Simulated assay, not measured.
Amino acid sequence: MWARASAGDSPGAIGARSRTESFTGTGVEPAGGADPSPLAIRSLAALLHVYIFAMESLWWTTPRVRVTFGASELDAQVTRAMAFNQGFYNLFLAIVTGAGVVAHARGESAVGAALVIAGAGSMLAAALVLLVSAAL
């Protein structure tokens, strides 16, 4: 719910969530009293995306990564620039999600929730696009 400002509140208090309010349904709860597992899962997703960044941007043409993605040596060379770019996309998702987890841990629930929802939500949306496109 939205916090109501009282006479003693700062001008920016109207419409702001308090640090102790819950973001029900988002999997992001205030620090200190909620189940930490949703944030742990999002942290693992962020770490996975850092690993994907390394595979796509740093190791794309190595035999192990080529086998993982089912790409020939020629395919890897031809798609190297695309993979490099996509790797950074994954890194940026990891950074946004990780920053949200850190903000939440520091008690900045609103900022943390916004960043986690943006980062992890984008990860989920991209995963759904991948699943749908694979089925076509």
Rank of each mutant, 00 (worst) to 15 (best):
L74F: 14
P30F: 06
P38G: 00
D35Y: 00
V78S: 02
I52N: 02
S72K: 13
L39V: 08
W59I: 08
G32I: 01
L47V: 07
A34I: 02
W60M: 09
I52K: 06
V65K: 10
P63M: 09
P36G: 03
H49I: 11
T26M: 09
G33M: 02
G33A: 05
S57A: 14
V28N: 04
T26L: 15
E73S: 03
R42M: 15
F53R: 15
Y51Q: 03
F69T: 00
R66C: 01
L48A: 07
P63I: 12
E29S: 10
S57L: 06
A31G: 11
F53G: 12
P38D: 02
T62N: 08
L48S: 03
T68L: 13
T68N: 10
A31N: 11
A46K: 13
R64V: 10
A45M: 14
A71E: 04
G32Q: 09
A71S: 05
E56S: 13
R42A: 12
Q77G: 01
Y51I: 01
A71C: 03
E29A: 14
L74H: 14
A46L: 10
A54Q: 08
F69H: 14
V78W: 10
A40V: 14
F69V: 01
S37D: 05
A54K: 05
G32T: 04
V50H: 07
L44S: 03
V67D: 07
